[in-house]
Design a protein around this nucleic acid. Sequence first.
DNA 1: TATAATTTTTAGACATGTCTAAATTAATAT
DNA 2: ATATTAATTTAGACATGTCTAAAAATTATA
Lengths: 218, 218
Amino acid sequence: MPTQTEENYLKAIFKLSGNEKELVSTNAIAEELETKASSVSDMVKKLSEKNLINYVKYQGVSLTNEGRDLAVHIIRKHRLWEVFLVNRLNFKWDEVHDIAEQLEHIRSSELVNKLDAFLCYPNYDPHGDPIPNAKGEFPKTTAIPLSEVQSKSKVKVVAVELDEPGFLNYLDKLNISIGTQVEILEVNDFDDSIDIKIDDVQRHISVEVAENILISVL
Amino acid sequence: MPTQTEENYLKAIFKLSGNEKELVSTNAIAEELETKASSVSDMVKKLSEKNLINYVKYQGVSLTNEGRDLAVHIIRKHRLWEVFLVNRLNFKWDEVHDIAEQLEHIRSSELVNKLDAFLCYPNYDPHGDPIPNAKGEFPKTTAIPLSEVQSKSKVKVVAVELDEPGFLNYLDKLNISIGTQVEILEVNDFDDSIDIKIDDVQRHISVEVAENILISVL
DNA sequence: TATAATTTTTAGACATGTCTAAATTAATAT
DNA sequence: ATATTAATTTAGACATGTCTAAAAATTATA
């Protein structure tokens, strides 16, 4: 059974390895977990001995099937708790991340599955992130970043890629939340900023923001 | 901010010091936490430095106001989570203790208070134990152990003093739960066992069991 | 009250996870 | 191909919380 710290390492490696199972570097993990590369080196050795990751010195690491499975189940817990906090306890979507970071480490598969049932088996968390089921399978999603939309079109916000209160708060100000319909008016070539219209109000957003909003074209 | 371990020590000391603020011995704490007296000695020194307990070498410890307050708030969290687990997630009352032991360490006063509201400010947990409010005040209770009932009478079960699955399971078998009406038929002097009647079924229970069932006389 | 038994504390060790500073390996540039 | 730079690992230290074994203090007993 991995410790909480080990779980956080697995989660970070999962997040950083993306869809194509890239090798993850020591430095990348250190940055993600706000720790030092030397600490990562130590931990990576331990996770490797437990067969949770593949590790080649100076090369990088990747998750084993067992490690990946553990990471996915931690993410499952994190996202289910976020649904609970927002939908049942009336937290706002920018307030739940830190609490869910704690709750995701509670050990009880019974608890997770009963919570899942209690919440009616949600497919997405309050930020639009997909929630894996008890088998560890993610619901299919075909979302793209708003920054990749070329032409004038109408789209729907399906998720956000950043969990930080500051960012989520800014979206609240723009009246953007999951499900919001957005009309693309103009993509400005020189700085890739976008002019959009929400509920007949025209707005201007930067690439940095657009990159972190996932949409599906209507 | 105390660590999880420190919180567990505070909780144990609170439990052991009873209503009359007795001094708690090192050995008692060690037994309660299933650890060694030497470990307790170390920890007690640390808690004392943090002004959470009063500690005199070789004498014993007692909680300071600050330590007591912390302990009470951990108990508050524990019991609120138990209500959530039983009333909302449909756990049985003998299944929730270990999970609540984990949940009680989640840090967020916002969370506790929203959970409290979500559960409609319950006064008692599934085992009948009183839940302190946000100020740390316990609801008044005037329950006595079933073992102290002298005469033939009708009583109502209001709480249990033991959280162990084995004991709770046994009560389930006897059809005893919080709120159950029990008729005392006979107290047997030689072994203090009691003959009772529940729903017209006659039963026989030992002192050990009776001591851990709290009742109020009807 | 002196001695025995018990309780509590201390000393020294270990495991976990972290850090800084130094050493090693790999990547990049000249 | 060699020198420089960057990334990674190792060595040694520290903090937390635990343990065993031994010492000290307290309590009980004769």
